[in-house]
Nucleic acid binder design. Structure first.
Lengths: 213, 213
DNA sequence: TTGACTTGGTACTGAAGAATACCATAATCG
DNA sequence: CGATTATGGTATTCTTCAGTACCAAGTCAA
């Protein structure tokens, strides 16, 4: 009833592509918010407009719809997580910058929703779990490992397993505060608190791996 | 039909308490394995014996059953996580010991199941999320903070926010490897790999906070 | 303009599962 | 031993929701 102008009662129809996009967008919102099982198609319909049929013609069903967006959304939402560290700065500045961006990205509402989705529905859709990890924490750790390798070559830090160190550092940023936010036990921290976390983490970690003369 | 001996067809009945316990135990298994929504009462019944009615008389329904076990199970499963660190050893030994136990506890199958449960159903049952955090990662960080305070008094480590440091260290142990296991992307690591994680984490972190003379 | 095709909206079907009703029987007590 | 109560087992109801069928109304092409 939303789109008819009162007299002529035209029910506007969208093109296949427009409908496809609107469905995908609505579904993304619903699935991210509530997870696969708790989302019902009617809610998606009412957000996207159109009819039940369109879901089946375009995606083949609930599962098809979910899978169509999973990988795409995962890589998209986690794009900020994957930003390459700046190799020109010195290690401390690179680390600080990298960590700040990573923490902000991980604590952003869409990324939090996606993390929950991956944990909740990763059992039913293993590709989701895989896509999430590889597009997010995995990619972040890989970039970081490169940074550590460089610093090692320059003799700034001690010799160590760079991939292991990267894993640990990324984990450290995903600390108990992050866990509390993920569990909805508290609100995401503001800039100030995020920076306190990051500066302390970088301070300790960097001090821990810096070569002592 | 399981419990009758062929001739006299005696259907053994259990006392209220025994039935209560068996239901609780069966429900724990099912809920931990599959989460709240995916668990159905029939499966619990068939594991525990008895009838649907007994669930309603004892617990009032599915929700009642779930809530009856949630807090109890959380504190029980996470008991190993909460072991007090040994304050007589030096800091490095204490940390190593603490971290080894924590990692082993967090990566144990029941704790992994519980973590998933808290993340999945923490939305519907906030007490679960709260109980999980406080009985697990929160408690671990608290113990650790005490250890850091002691070391600070003894001048072994630099002056820092012990609670923040504890948060970070616990997070570091919950690294990408842990995340992969949680997402079921890989099997829990064996002793050897766990020790590699722990020794590196302790090495870096301790080095990062040790007072330099 | 008209007929073929597509899409929107609604109604129906079937399955899953929670909650409830009912009956027969075991346990308990007078 | 018989009456009362509680429990086990089964059948039934009710709700939710994915998937499908169908009709009407819009769109497009000849």
């Amino acid at each position: 009833m939303t789109k008819m102008n009162c007299v002529s009662r035209k029910k506007k129809r969208l093109s296949a592509e427009q409908r496809y996009e609107r469905l995908l967008k609505a579904a993304t919102g619903e699935f991210l918010e509530k997870g696969y099982a708790a989302t019902n198609l009617d809610d998606i319909i009412s957000r996207a407009g159109g009819s039940r049929r369109s879901i089946y013609t375009h995606f083949g069903g609930k599962e098809g719809l979910f899978q169509a967006l999973v990988t795409q959304v995962a890589t998209q939402i986690l794009a900020p997580v994957r930003q390459e560290p700046d190799k020109n700065k010195n290690l401390k500045e690179s680390l600080l910058c990298f960590a700040n961006r990573l923490v902000a990205a991980l604590l952003s509402p869409p990324a939090l929703d996606l993390s929950r989705l991956a944990l909740i529905d990763g059992v039913r859709f293993p590709e989701l779990a895989k896509a999430y990890f590889e597009a997010g924490p995995g990619a972040a750790a890989s970039s970081l490992a490169v940074l550590f390798d460089l610093a090692m070559e320059r003799g700034e830090i001690v010799h160590l397993d760079s991939r292991l160190a990267a894993r640990l550092f990324v984990g450290m940023l995903r600390d108990n505060l992050y866990l509390q936010v993920l569990l909805r036990l508290r609100e995401p921290p503001e800039q100030e608190e995020r920076e306190e976390l990051v500066s302390n983490a970088v301070e300790i970690f960097l001090n821990g791996i810096t070569r002592q003369e």
